[in-house]
Design a protein around this nucleic acid. Structure first.
Lengths: 343, 343
DNA sequence: CTGAAAGCGCTTACAG
DNA sequence: CTGAAAGCGCTTACAG
């Protein structure tokens, strides 16, 4: 496919009767070139619809203007807002994003990192697969090019990490439950101790301690995938306890929605009998009846910040950075925990 | 950044004491090379962690193994499943996907196409921005490389188009409403006559005609963005009519959910008094109470098929193709139109 | 079966 | 201010 019609620097040079070097420099605004020549070159480039071959350029300069992104699952609403932020900030800086989905499969994730390295992307943004145990390829990549972890992170990788204030957010939402008068607050978290789950659990514990509420192990439940189905199952289980909780904090909205479905099904008044809180503020949280109190995670913002830090490392050739950036979240109070008197 | 440690064919050749050509051929399994040499070369490549430079290769062979994808909005659930299918099928064939979001902005879309052309992607997958009026850049791109339209398409572009059977799907869901005894069926569609909206509207009309139901213009409503808010607004409006509908078909789930909220708020029994149907089968359709009858659009499947057709054009150097592929959808009956007796 | 050489389209020291 | 030339890492006719 060596397209005959493709306009290259060579063709422009011939058309203008000057050298390729001069054309190249004129197009990139090199100070040595007279403004007159620049004008002529640019005019001709436009007229002939010259499109610079980014592959040739990237190959020559070792700069691809491509960012590699690997996320566990693109179809979660939060993830899609994260990607939105990443793409917009990348675009603003002239970068393109290659997106891959690890599907929470560690092997896939490793393969994808290798591919990113083959493509010679300028930097990598990674949100870890849930099961990640082996960090070799990640650390290997880190030696080759900037890599920033985002949202699903691990302290085992010495690099910049962009996360939300999980612990604090969980503290605030549990504190809110306490302030509405709840005393026996259950938590539904992840069986596996992911970074997010663990932080949210710590926030829950700190809130209970701060307000001198005894920690009851029977109210601490876990599930593998914290989905709506698991929420239903565990919600049903909690209702059946002799000494029921009066509040349930779920570390995902999906699980919280499952819990609400279980309570609705059993005709248990929410929030009077049992209040329910989630985490993420996904679209479904305002569709379920009653609407769900939750934590808004500004996915777009997180994506933007991640790209900013990554580009800083790319542009300044920063080798090691190990800071953790926490993005603030917002508590969104809705009917599942508190019915306002007015309106 | 011309990294000294990077392993190239040259380095392998020196290490092995043979020529670069031979190394290259050995690695790509050229029949001319003895299996002994191949084995030696491959072993050394593995040992030194040789990573082929895909940019050099792409630059040399005019093949980038990158597919460019442009969608209006990544955060719609359907779009995310579409992307999932695209990425998986691309990956299976050794391709990477560069994703861009036009945000329904025609100018952005044009810019993105230009960037895709600069990168020299092997092919482009495009889901049109709602406002697209000018098809010049799209047709221009089509001259340079394969381009396939997917989901949001237009007959104004002479290329392969992958769509769902909108007309037929709408026919079936309206037919279902009729079969449950409904006689005055309203439709909420898009003000602007997008391909999808228009097809669904035609399906609605055909169903009414087929079952000899008079078409009542007052039951045909439109809104700009067919969102949940618009669904609420138009739902409220429909209820207030002197001669109310007994069924409402919305061309999106969001609008249908808005309608259900309006009906719930006004304590109108669904489906007995008024039945509601949507289109898409997004996650929220099983969260709303009652659960929504809708059309399942197999996003992942559509994405896979789109990539298959695109790769066929890429690999066989097909210049012109103008077929429209329709992907079958499924009618999902839930409580918003029909409460089953058993269960 | 293997190697020397050209060339993909660009940038950039070096020379003038 | 401009040009000739080298080179980024690869593939592939061409020659042997």
């Amino acid at each position: 496919m060596p397209n005959k019609n493709v306009v290259t620097l060579k063709k422009l040079a011939k058309e203008l009767g000057i050298s390729i070097s001069t054309v190249s420099r004129a197009l990139s605004n090199h100070p040595d070139i007279s403004s007159e020549t620049k004008a002529r070159v640019k005019e001709t480039a436009k007229r002939l619809h010259y499109i610079p071959n980014l592959f040739a350029k990237g190959f020559r300069t070792h700069k691809t203007f491509i960012i590699g992104l690997i996320v566990p699952d693109i179809s979660h609403y939060f993830t899609s807002t994260l990607i939105k932020g990443i793409m917009q900030e990348a675009e603003l800086n002239g970068y393109k994003v290659i997106v891959s989905e690890s599907r929470n499969n560690e092997l896939k994730q490793t393969e994808m990192l290798q591919t990113m390295n083959q493509f010679g992307v300028d930097g990598v943004l990674l949100s870890l697969a849930r099961t990640t145990k082996n960090f070799d390829e990640i650390i290997n990549t880190l030696q080759l090019r900037p890599l920033v972890l985002v949202d699903k992170v691990s302290t085992k990788v010495p690099c910049t990490q962009i996360v939300i204030d999980d612990e604090d957010a969980a503290f605030r939402i549990v504190e809110h439950l306490i302030q509405t008068g709840k005393k026996r607050i259950a938590i539904i978290k992840e069986t596996e101790k992911s970074f997010n789950s663990e932080m949210r659990y710590l926030g829950y514990i700190r809130a209970l301690k701060t307000y001198k509420i005894e920690i009851d192990k029977s109210l601490i439940l876990s599930s593998e995938d914290i989905s709506m189905e698991q929420g239903k199952r565990l919600g049903t289980l909690l209702i059946s306890m002799k000494n029921r909780p009066d509040g349930i904090f779920c570390i995902t909205d999906s699980a919280a929605i499952g819990v609400i479905k279980a309570l609705n099904h059993n005709k248990i008044p929410i929030p009077n009998e049992i209040a329910v809180a989630g985490f993420s503020n996904n679209k479904a949280s305002v569709i379920i009846q009653p609407k769900l109190t939750t934590i808004d995670q500004p996915g777009k913002k997180i994506g933007e910040v991640a790209v900013k830090y990554l580009l800083e490392e790319i542009n300044n050739d920063i080798k090691v950075s190990n800071k953790t950036i926490e993005i603030k979240t917002n508590l969104i109070v809705r009917d599942s925990t508190f019915k306002s008197n007015y309106t």
